[in-house]
């Protein structure tokens, strides 16, 4: 249970960083932290204490195995997270070229 709780704290750290930080790079890092917290949660969902990989073999009887589906899902979400990070970082580079700053309070050519 404490593992789930720590995972949730990690998620909140990421969310705090996205919502409160003014530096674009820190916001992107916050997104990454959130992403990894959810990945960790997915792994925890499928984890069994002392479980092993569910690989079928003739001479072995598997009594306690981890759920492989969340692991497959995590592989996919890592790739998706990579794509989002690439987009965000490349936008950050171009924004720095145009505005000369990473501070979001100074990047305000659009008004609501």
């Amino acid at each position: 249970m404490s593992l789930y709780f720590l995972c949730f704290i990690l998620f909140c750290v990421g969310l705090y960083s996205v919502l409160r930080k003014r530096n674009i790079i820190k916001i992107i890092i916050g997104l990454g932290i959130m992403e990894y917290a959810v990945n960790l949660f997915l792994i925890l969902v499928g984890y069994r204490m002392h479980g092993r990989a569910p690989i079928f073999a003739k001479d072995q009887e598997i009594l306690n195995m981890v759920d492989p589906l969340p692991q497959a899902m995590v592989l996919t979400t890592i790739v998706i997270g990579l794509a989002v990070t690439i987009i965000a970082v490349s936008l950050a580079i171009r924004i720095y070229e145009k505005y000369g700053t990473f501070d979001i309070t100074k990047i305000r050519s659009l008004k609501g």
Binding site: I24, L31, L91, I95, K98
Partner: peptide, 14 residues
């Protein structure tokens, strides 16, 4: 890739 487009896209991405 004008400054406004980048800013809007960054907001949208986040």
């Amino acid at each position: 890739v004008k400054p406004q487009n980048l800013e809007a896209a960054f907001k949208y991405t986040i």
